[in-house]
Write a protein that binds this DNA or RNA. Structure first.
Lengths: 355, 355
DNA sequence: TTGTATGCGTTATCAC
DNA sequence: GTGATAACGCATACAA
């Protein structure tokens, strides 16, 4: 049926040389005369020769391929990381096999085994629910890189592993957030966790620490385990009751969804309550009101990750773990607290002129 | 350095059988006695044996791998398609190599050659700038599938190829949009194209056709070649001048961005102008105001695509091309036209009682 | 029921 | 400079 694909042998025959010569010529071996190089290349091109990477990686004992596992590319942040990673890998001639783990342990294990079966040159893992030791064991001896803060086994450590971790500097991000909130005059702050996962704990603790460092009151923490539906509505109800000045959310997606719920509940944003996100996804810039958030260059995160893996190719160890810088982007959701009519605090603290 | 990986031979030796027996036992060959099957599996597991897919695909002349090319996974729609595709492929034991084409011809060619080098069992292409014939030639003899409407060489055809195309039913979607707009009383409609690409032409023409079919006036078409900045601002200026009742956008991203621009320009949405998107990305549901749009199950699109490729594995031809159903989701951006104070039309048509 | 031998396409180690 | 040839790890046709 399908016409057998053209091999080195075909090219060799057509060019009247040996397969060895073709192999060398195509790889630009300087031992081959310029003349034959030209001729071989020409023939290869004429015949539409395309090397078989399976054969190559079989003899080379490694494939020019990386594995990349994410929870789910649907998330804008994951998408950006994947894009950056793939782009950088491609620039260096590497392919990337993508796997979605869906935060399911068995699915993740299958994916990692698949990577191992492909004898990938390296693997980057984002937001796995597996323990890092297990991930490394499954993939060994391929170098394994962890992207983002969603792996920390012990919260409170800044970096879990001394090498092979790349993630945004959540601590610093939250610090910038807190500085901004205080400067704008916000007093009571709440934290809303989004999805489950270690990352949101890292950010929560970072917020708590940042608040404490500046002598500000501790935040009220709302857990919204189920982001999509009931969870956020429950949180909204809580917010309506507790009336914090500002709500810091685990990420932009949570923040934007929460804003929608609050709007549904008739809350006037950002006057009645401020909102802060995290990640600076594209839609944070054009939401209404526009979301104040912590910006991270996720595509850079992806590119750096690929770079890390690339750096291990010549037998070197993984580069030291690294925190990526983040910057607060102040937009419209944190204008500062407004006096609310009928608020007790106002009545009791603001002197009223009697006449 | 790295401890040589365990092979079939290692398992064979440890289990005191031949490699052939191990190979057969592991693939569940019924010719092997139950006893040895058990033992071999046990040993393989103990030794942490992981098959080498390179060797396997070399002898099998095909790899359990699909190639998937998208313009850029950052786009929510692409992300969903990729997720669905990868998920379905994984369910059947297939890996997927992801490549971003970035709408650059050379980058795309490199990616496709990479797929060919991997001897992938099939390729799905989304939004390529290459001609379909070239894509097929580059990939031949691997079956090639086209996802979405971004390939049509000739606009006006519903489906370019009789086989191997899967895309949402843009025609029907625009028809539903027009029906809705007319029912709500909108008269003048404008169309805003987003990114370049064939897809937006398809949708534009679908809108034109739908309008014509119902005897409604033709739309004004605004071209926003550069979605991000200047393009949309120019379009906004145009809209301010022409004042259409409603603006139908190429996709949600364009619609949401436009809404942001309009808001910046002080336009009161949706009262002064209605907005319609296309795709129903997650943020369309929580925008303010919430976006009326055409919903397509993009994850399903991805899954179906993988299914199509899977269906060709036993030597069959690609399934017939298919249009995926879409449904209009009416939300808040199309409440119907409001009377605008100071509008000439109003003054001249509405009789005013003299007193 | 199991073992032996061959070949898949490539790179690399030798010869020449 | 170039040509044989031996791996690489696996699946299978053919023997036993």
């Amino acid at each position: 049926m399908s016409p057998r694909r053209v091999t080195l042998g075909d090219v060799a025959q057509r060019a009247s040389v040996s397969v060895a010569t073709v192999s060398r010529a195509l790889s630009g071996d300087s031992q081959i005369s310029e003349a034959t190089q030209q001729r071989v290349r020409q023939v290869a091109s004429d015949l539409r020769y395309i090397p078989n990477v399976a054969a190559r990686s079989l003899v080379l004992q490694s494939s020019a391929t990386f594995g990349l596992m994410t929870p789910d590319v649907t998330d804008p942040i994951h998408g950006q990381v994947v894009t950056g990673f793939q782009q950088r890998a491609a620039e260096r001639g590497y392919s990337v096999i993508l796997a979605n783990g869906f935060r399911d342990a068995e699915t993740e294990r299958r994916s990692l085994r698949e990577f191992a079966a492909h004898r990938v040159a390296g693997v980057a893992v984002m937001g796995s629910v597996l323990r890092q030791t297990e991930v490394k064991r499954l993939l060994s001896p391929s170098p394994t890189l962890f992207i983002g803060s969603d792996h920390l086994p012990a919260v409170g450590t800044d970096l879990d592993l001394p090498r092979g971790c790349v993630r945004p500097d959540d601590r610093d991000g939250m610090d910038q957030v807190v500085a901004h909130l205080i400067e704008r005059g916000y007093r009571t702050v709440a934290y809303v966790s989004g999805s489950s996962g270690a990352n949101q704990i890292v950010r929560r603790d970072a917020l708590i620490a940042a608040l404490a460092a500046r002598g500000a009151p501790q935040p009220v923490v709302f857990q919204a385990d189920d982001v999509d539906d009931a969870g956020l509505q429950a949180v909204t109800a809580q917010i309506l009751r507790r009336r914090p000045d500002v709500v810091v959310c685990y990420d932009d997606k949570t923040a934007l969804s929460l804003m929608d719920e609050l709007r549904t509940a008739g809350v006037n944003l950002p006057d009645e309550v401020g909102v802060v996100g995290f990640d600076d996804i594209p839609f944070a810039r054009i939401s209404n009101p526009r979301l104040t958030t912590v910006s991270q260059r996720s595509d850079e995160l992806g590119r750096i990750s690929a770079e890390f893996l690339l750096a291990t190719l010549d037998g070197k160890r993984l580069p030291l773990s690294q925190l990526m810088p983040v910057t607060l982007v102040v937009r419209e959701t944190t204008p500062g607290p407004r006096r609310r009519a009928g608020t007790k605090a106002k009545k009791s603290t603001v002197p009223v002129a009697i006449r």
